[in-house]
Nucleic acid binder design. Sequence first.
DNA 1: ACGCTTTCAGACCAAACGGTCTGCTTTAGA
DNA 2: TCTAAAGCAGACCGTTTGGTCTGAAAGCGT
Lengths: 250, 250
Amino acid sequence: MEDSGARMIATFRQRIVESHVSASTRGKEPARQARRKQQRVPSAASLSRRLRNSERKRAVILEAALETFSKYGIHGASIEQIALQADVSKTNLFYYFTNKEELYVSVLRNLLDLWLKPLRAFTEDQDPIEAIRDYLRVKLEFSRDHPAESRLFCMEVMQGAPLMLTELQQPLHDLVENKIAVIQTWIDQGKLSAVEPYHLIFSLWATTQHYADFRVQIEAVAGKTLDDPAFFTETLKSLETIILNGVSPR
Amino acid sequence: MEDSGARMIATFRQRIVESHVSASTRGKEPARQARRKQQRVPSAASLSRRLRNSERKRAVILEAALETFSKYGIHGASIEQIALQADVSKTNLFYYFTNKEELYVSVLRNLLDLWLKPLRAFTEDQDPIEAIRDYLRVKLEFSRDHPAESRLFCMEVMQGAPLMLTELQQPLHDLVENKIAVIQTWIDQGKLSAVEPYHLIFSLWATTQHYADFRVQIEAVAGKTLDDPAFFTETLKSLETIILNGVSPR
DNA sequence: ACGCTTTCAGACCAAACGGTCTGCTTTAGA
DNA sequence: TCTAAAGCAGACCGTTTGGTCTGAAAGCGT
């Protein structure tokens, strides 16, 4: 009981590895064994149709899981709730995902790719002001269009990212390290005021994600959300004013 | 099942009201009834001693609850885990708090006061740049010294603040409205560049809290946390550069 | 049409967990 | 010292929930 947290993390790690393999080969796996008696090779057409169906259903479940996990947290969301939302039976859900953790991790994995993508666009040959402006816009659009993803990511990181830590540490660290260098170059060239690159990136993340993660607070205070187009542009403009002014060389 | 979320919220609301009364009168309540037979009026000294003990124990439990809730979320944290951490029995915990929700709400209530306090300091007669600089520092100190509070607050808001919403909406809205006016005055006086006050406040919140809420991410990327004094001052300086420059009139 | 595989549902199970009940111990007024 | 109330613990209970078992339909190659 006392180390249930640590034990759970260990379990999760293990499951991540397993799911890496099993997820991609699911449905074909039993075929490898128990050949011998009969060479039943399905036609390419039917196979791909089946796979498409299977993948579609997986996607539906993942979507429902994302929605539900992001609302109630991993422990607050029950499998039955997710199954209901995805309009499948609980048993059926367990047919596609071996357990809750694998489902959760699958959701997270999709997330991380999506979350990291915008930062990759940062390249040295861009004008820094434009690059940052673009980044703000893309990230704010992400907050508007994928609030569930944003919240779930936030939740996971906040709880110590027990599942993503390994996946987060290396790739994220490398990517950021890379972008830090880009920003530093800009600074050295006098295109950006002297600000610690780390914190610039953190500020960009923080300010844009805030509008998704603290949505209800923002709604309580301002009475609007990013779904309101006017509020969206107003927000973007304000962030540009604050941050771009802040980092423009004087 | 399908509306368990809504039902829970309703339950919570109700409990909030109850706990408002019962919490303050706890321990004295049975005395009101069943008088009549004997007037057993405890001395002021012993009463206060008892109360002190009682309050201390409550505080210990609240502290443990905060720590545990902020780590695992309300559903991920079990009462037994909290009791263990507070070094009391589960039964004993239920002696002080009628149920999990009341415990959780009590933690949140303490939180909100703490969280709101810094903003109250904003007054019109200050120099805006100094006021914002102070605010950044205080909020960053909060992130450093009360990371659990910060995270739990974030979690609660992210999940739609089912418990705090009523308490959040009115007071927060009023307070912010007030401070918006202060900032607008500064802008009108030309002491601050023309930026939508809402978003300035949001940016201040977002950037400072980020260091507590995304601590593990920051650690993964930068390898340091606010606990490192050098990193703390570096962070503060960077935020000042970015935001203060951004809002200073040119 | 036959037979194997995939897909899926209902009944079921064991563990976890929030919460209660009973009763013992301590405190403190009389 | 006696006694009522406060403080507290262990056993216990009902529900929820992640997950399994059994077996039946549907898909598909032959």
